Simulated scan of single mutants.
Amino acid sequence: MKRTRAFAAICHPILVVACLVSLASCNQDNKAAQQQRETPPPVAEEPTLKSLTPETAVPVLTEFAKNNPDSLFLIRTRLGDIKVRLYKDTPLHRANFVRLAKAGFYDEGEFYRVVKGFAIQGGDSDERKMKLGAYKIPQEINLKNLHIHKKGALAMARYGDERNPEKESSSHNFYIVQGKPRSVSELRAIEAQHHMQYTPEQIRIYKTLGGEPGLDTEYTVFGEVVEGLDVVDKIANVQVGGGDWPVDVVKHQIKVVEN
């Protein structure tokens, strides 16, 4: 309206017609602008993710893996970035992680369980909107080429043996190991308990870098941190409340980076 009144005030008697044309033009412009303001912007559709079932999970993930060989990912948090590389010999776990990351599922998640000296667990959130169906991933634990739970190991959570004797992994809940250095005697005891044997290199890693060997052969490790172990430590050190849930939320976003 201010612009219309300004046009009317400067009109000269001999320019009445021109002024009327200007006023009509201005009114049309204002009307169009008002309509534009009153029309809400289009609402962006929420990302969709096709739900999987126990019957469809393996074939869908197997097919997805053929065209999605991505293996390097960036986990962004308010405390810094963590870069992880996924293993090629755990194809179902890798395909599942890639699929959820590319669909934006993990962008709605957070590190919701933090146990200092043990691990940080993420992938879920009470505020999640996306659904993915009720399914589990068959375990991919290979004793001949065992991926150990060294510090920085990326693995999938699962229900205990009572409910899940096949050791099938969660569809989306993952964890990153923090752990601590271990002695040779501890490692020998775990070897006997789990009926397996560490290589000299794996023993060296557990003695120096550290980790959680008690989880070996029990959960599928499908990747590892290649940058940002210090960020894992920062997250592990946050203050937690009931259920080991961080007092200040540690949300995460997970994106593919160039391999």
Rank of each mutant, 00 (worst) to 15 (best):
Q36A: 15
R37K: 15
P40V: 14
A44C: 03
E45A: 15
E45R: 06
T48D: 03
T48H: 08
L49F: 13
K50R: 10
S51K: 13
S51N: 10
S51H: 07
L52I: 12
T53A: 04
T53M: 00
A57M: 07
V58T: 11
P59D: 10
V60C: 05
L61S: 11
T62A: 13
T62I: 11
F64I: 03
F64A: 10
K66E: 13
N67F: 04
N67G: 14
N68T: 11
P69L: 13
D70C: 04
L74K: 15
I75P: 06
I75Q: 07
L79C: 05
G80I: 14
D81R: 02
I82G: 12
V84K: 02
V84A: 01
V84H: 04
R85C: 08
L86Y: 01
L86K: 06
Y87Q: 04
Y87R: 02
Y87L: 08
K88Y: 04
K88M: 01
P91I: 02
L92I: 03
A95I: 08
V98R: 09
R99T: 02
L100N: 05
A101Q: 05
A101P: 02
F105P: 04
F105M: 10
Y106L: 12
E110Y: 00
E110Q: 13
Y112L: 15
R113M: 01
V114M: 04
V115H: 08
F118W: 14
I120E: 09
G122I: 12
E127K: 15
R128E: 08
R128F: 02
M130D: 02
M130S: 06
K131S: 02
L132P: 00
L132A: 02
G133S: 11
G133K: 09
Y135T: 01
I137P: 07
I137N: 00
P138H: 06
Q139S: 15
I141K: 10
N142C: 08
L143I: 13
L146R: 05
H147F: 06
K151P: 06
G152F: 01
G152A: 00
A153E: 07
L154A: 02
A155G: 04
A155D: 10
M156N: 02
A157Q: 03
A157T: 08
G160L: 13
D161N: 14
R163W: 07
N164C: 09
E166K: 14
E168R: 13
E168T: 09
S170E: 08
S171L: 00
N173P: 00
V177R: 06
V177E: 11
V177N: 09
V177D: 11
V177T: 14
V177W: 12
